[in-house]
Design a binder for these strands. Structure first.
Lengths: 126, 126
DNA sequence: AAGCTTTCTGTTATAACATCACGTTAATGG
DNA sequence: CCATTAACGTGATGTTATAACAGAAAGCTT
């Protein structure tokens, strides 16, 4: 089940809600229900194969198959494209800022909204 | 209505869901319905009086009454306390990292999970 | 004051996201 | 073979958020 969910997410460039995934997989498997999808998504996110976009209640396949890492997501307001940014320095800086008030960080949620390079180019032409 | 919602959020130190707020206010005003609360919360967040915690689907009163600013939230896994961190430098750094791939940032969602100073102190004693 | 617009609120219903609780099946290993 | 565990199926429910439309209050214009 995890593999099937991951395949669906990989076929799609953008984020999908759990119910989007459910809709796709129901084309083959009728009777598929939300808990099944959520279980698979939960395992996949734990394994780092899928990331959850907290501010969208949606999921995307990880762009980097091979590694353990923390991530920063950029989300284009125009086209919805999501991109994964890896920057340990920035995450360290963030932990540093938090630690100024004695806070010990364990997990970061960073989601940046704006306009991607492609959409900026289109808009510049128009 | 905005004032009443804001008062409720200020009385509470931690985050509240829209329905938590609704529950509080229903003690006085029966018949209060979700859209009323969501409208008030929407105006308050637009005005910067309230911040939304995207990863919790919850809301907190802004800790800084007086100003326009972007914010970073720290959230304690142990006690649930939320703290607002202001760091324009870090936000600039974040925009900078995103711009390396041509992305133009307009809004940042930054939520850090971990353990606050108070909870760390308690744990250290034990 | 009458009529108009604007803004906020009330109300019902429903959409969208997520989990609980329990039962069944299938593989694992003693 | 049987106990255990892990994954999945199933139905119901819980939680978060919005759509669509109606009504009331406040301010403006004439």
């Amino acid at each position: 089940m995890q593999d099937e969910v991951l395949d669906v997410l990989r076929e799609r460039s953008g984020p999908m809600s759990a119910y989007d995934v459910l809709g796709q997989l129901r084309q083959d498997k009728l009777n598929l229900a939300p808990p099944t999808i959520y279980r698979a998504l939960s395992s996949l996110t734990n394994r780092g194969k899928v990331h959850r976009l907290e501010s969208l209640n949606a999921f995307v396949a990880c762009q980097y198959d091979d590694h353990e890492h923390a991530w920063i997501m950029s989300i284009c307001d125009s086209c919805g494209a999501v991109n994964e940014i890896v920057s340990p320095e920035l995450l360290n800086a963030l932990s540093g800022v938090a630690s100024e008030s004695g806070f010990l960080s364990t997990r970061h949620v960073i989601e940046i909204y704006g306009q991607c390079a492609a959409c900026r180019a289109i808009e510049a032409k128009a």
